[in-house]
């Protein structure tokens, strides 16, 4: 974001930053050096931690790029000394398997609608809970908060029997509906609290400017709620993408997502680690891409300059 700031703006930033420093006591050269070294050390440490955290991911990636024989005989780190081991054969095998390809498609068909429905419905509901006056609003919201603590497991049996009499059972919409139902309370709760923190004056200004509720929602609340909505979207996407339990219970074989497919491919003692690791890496890459695509919406201080 800051790279897009115009020159005039950045000049202003520098000036206000300078003004801000005037009040602080003047620091000696040594003190500033210590501070610089300190922040440098922190950065080095953070980079080390980040690298350490990436080790399993890299391990998975390299395992998926080695043949089953190599994986059986040596650890994945040997690729650093013998890069010739690297091969795309595992991925080729995986993509030749129509069951796996369709399970990837099923995962997308389950995750994208679930996330989209939750984000849309939760943000509309959150706006209503935060800013519209209607009878019973607070009781209803308390009800939503209460739903947060209902464990998913208690619903598995009742929902199964509900689905039982309908063509829904085993289908992709059945899984989507379940995810939406269990994702909404948290989504509404998160967004409602974020929207409620938007200064009332802003909404009233928009009302005075001639905005109807839907216009205010679209042109004031949504842009300001961006970070919260992006977080909800990312969390919901990850949660549904990685879900195994709900899919195991509600998805029939034709609609099973990748998690179920991978689990059923699993052989004893991880004997087929080559295929598993390739599949696992594929299933991991998409949420990562989603995260990186939306992370720019986590902008600090979007509210600055609104009031006072």
């Amino acid at each position: 974001m800051s790279a897009q700031v115009e020159p005039a703006e950045s000049a202003e930033h520098t000036r206000s930053a300078a003004a801000g420093n005037e009040g602080a006591p003047h620091r000696s050269l040594a003190a500033r050096l210590v501070a610089r070294v300190g922040s440098g050390a922190v950065q080095v440490l953070l980079i080390l931690i980040a690298l350490f955290w990436m080790v399993p991911t890299l391990g998975l990636l390299f395992s998926s790029l080695r043949s089953p024989q190599d994986n059986a005989s040596s650890g994945w780190w040997t690729v650093f000394t013998e890069p010739a081991q690297l091969t795309l054969r595992n991925y080729a095998v995986l993509l030749d398997n129509p069951d796996f390809v369709s399970s990837f498609g099923n995962t997308v068909l389950i995750t994208v609608p679930s996330t989209a429905i939750i984000v849309v419905v939760a943000s509309l509901a959150a706006y209503a809970f935060a800013w519209l006056e209607f009878p019973g609003r607070d009781w209803l919201f308390l009800g939503v908060v209460g739903l947060l603590v209902v464990p998913i497991q208690v619903a598995l049996v009742p929902i199964s029997s509900l689905y039982g009499g309908t063509p829904l059972y085993g289908s992709i919409p059945a899984v989507v509906l379940f995810h939406v139902g269990f994702g909404l309370p948290f989504g509404i709760f998160l967004l409602r609290n974020f929207f409620a923190a938007i200064p009332r004056d802003l909404l009233e200004a928009a009302r005075m400017d001639g905005g109807r509720e839907l216009t205010i929602f679209r042109r004031v609340i949504l842009p300001l709620g961006g970070p919260a909505i992006a977080s909800l979207g990312i969390f919901q996407f990850l949660w549904v993408w990685n879900d195994l339990l709900v899919a195991l219970v509600f998805a029939a074989e034709a609609s099973q997502p990748m998690t179920v497919a991978l689990q059923s491919e699993m052989r004893q003692f991880g004997a087929n680690i080559d295929v598993i690791s390739a599949g696992a890496f594929l299933s991991m890459v998409v949420p990562l891409l989603v995260f990186f695509a939306f992370q720019r919406y986590f902008v600090q201080g979007v509210m600055a300059g609104a009031v006072k």
């Binding site: 200064p199 004056d201 802003l202 400017d209 004031v220 609104a306 009031v307």
Partner: peptide, 12 residues
């Protein structure tokens, strides 16, 4: 039209 004490400018 109203001018608010807090100005209530749209920050975005």
């Amino acid at each position: 039209a109203m001018v608010f004490q807090s100005y209530a400018l749209y920050p975005h």
